[in-house]
Amino acid sequence: MQLESLYQEIILDHYKHPHGRGLRDAADPADQVGEAHHVNPTCGDEVTIRVATDGDTLHDVSYDGMGCSISQASASVLHELLTGRAASEAFEVHAAFVALMSGRGQVTPDEDVLGDGVAFEGVARYPARVKCALLPWMAFKDAAARAGVGVSPTEVKA
């Protein structure tokens, strides 16, 4: 049944048992911390992402939010995939996830890059839900930029 491609077990599992949920202070006081709060105006989903980094490694990607299973599971997967990663790697993962979600179901995800994120392949076939899945990832991008790391860090203004 179609519905199962959307609500894969992995997604429901992340939704019911979110990994690393809650906003945390940086463990290392020397870290730069950036935070972004994004809302989906059509449904009222909200997510806050906080990034703590020394400029090279993302020491923590913490989050809080409320919303549908897709947006909240996506935040949980994001936390799991990006925490502890080098900033440059994190943006590769970010780009791969955005490409997957923009692919209308035509993009085959690479599990080595996206881990549990591959479960969102089915979501890409539901245009109304793509925004839900992307919400935490867009907030992450802003939060990272505010912490001084970005896709093109040189372009980031303080």
Binding site: L3, G44, C68, C132
Partner: peptide, 28 residues
């Protein structure tokens, strides 16, 4: 259960309902 998820499962059964804040956020 989030209304988006309610609406999605109902849609898979042909049932079309609206989910969201219905352009009346103060009520929500």
């Amino acid at each position: 259960v989030h209304p988006h998820d309610v609406g999605q499962v109902l849609d898979s059964l042909g049932v079309q309902v609206r989910v969201g804040h219905h352009c009346a956020r103060p009520v929500c």
